[in-house]
């Protein structure tokens, strides 16, 4: 059975980098926001560069909220949100006013507070304090670095945190709730370590779907 990975195209993401990364890993994928493709998909990647409300608005105007919601929550298809794609998984955000998120992982997105050692936006590389090694961080080298670029932080219950930023433990680096994943850093921009995380996710998606034996065409 051919895996179908769909990179959600909603006009705020930097798709090109994610495309380059998946090509480097030799995965087949589609970039789409069409209902037919999403219904036929096995796993999703929700990329993101942008503002929270813009991302939510674009998801909404393409009818993706209920469509993806059904596929992810009811049919339990894996999804990986990157950066803003991760933040929209939260219940709400206070970026430019108050905005509702998808609410798939309980939590809220709040502005990073400036401190003496922390400039905002938080831009740069950091290694992680990994809370849940599997499946995303399997086989990761000790002290692997990832690239962050954000002004807002995903605050959520500890049970959903997969990794924190080691340089600043207040910053949530990765979240997970069952088959729903989110990365605050950009794996597609984090050299080999980042490509490994992407590959780990796609391998998880394959195994997860195989375990559940998803019928080829529903």
């Amino acid at each position: 059975m051919k895996r179908r990975i769909v990179i959600i195209d909603y006009e705020v993401g930097n798709h090109q980098s994610v495309i380059n990364a998946l090509e480097a890993l030799h995965y087949d994928f589609l970039v789409s926001c069409k209902a037919a493709d999403i219904l036929a998909a096995d796993a999703f990647i929700l990329p993101g560069v942008g503002a929270f409300h813009e991302a939510m608005r674009n998801l909404k105007s393409r009818g993706l909220i209920s469509l993806l919601g059904h596929e992810v929550l009811e049919k339990r298809k894996p999804i990986l949100g990157i950066c803003v794609g991760m933040q929209v998984l939260a219940g709400s955000s206070t970026e430019d006013g108050f905005h509702q998120g998808l609410g798939w992982i309980p939590g809220k997105v709040v502005k990073l507070q400036e401190t003496r050692s922390r400039k905002v936006p938080h831009v740069g590389w950091s290694d992680l304090e990994i809370v849940k090694p599997g499946p995303l961080f399997r086989g990761m080298r000790e002290r692997a670095n990832f690239y962050f670029d954000h002004s807002y932080n995903f605050e959520c219950g500890r049970e959903f945190v997969a990794a924190n930023c080691r340089d600043d433990s207040m910053i949530t680096a990765a979240v997970q709730k069952d088959h729903i994943f989110g990365l605050q850093f950009h794996p597609e921009k984090s050299q080999i370590a980042g490509l490994k995380v992407l590959r780990n996710y796609l391998q998880f998606a394959r195994d997860y779907n195989a375990r559940r034996a998803v019928p080829a065409d529903v």
């Binding site: 705020v12 560069v49 942008g50 813009e54 936006p121 831009v123 670029d149 954000h150 002004s151």
Partner: peptide, 9 residues
């Protein structure tokens, strides 16, 4: 630009 793509961009 910041409004559309976030100021980090």
């Amino acid at each position: 630009g910041a409004k559309a793509f976030g100021k980090q961009c």
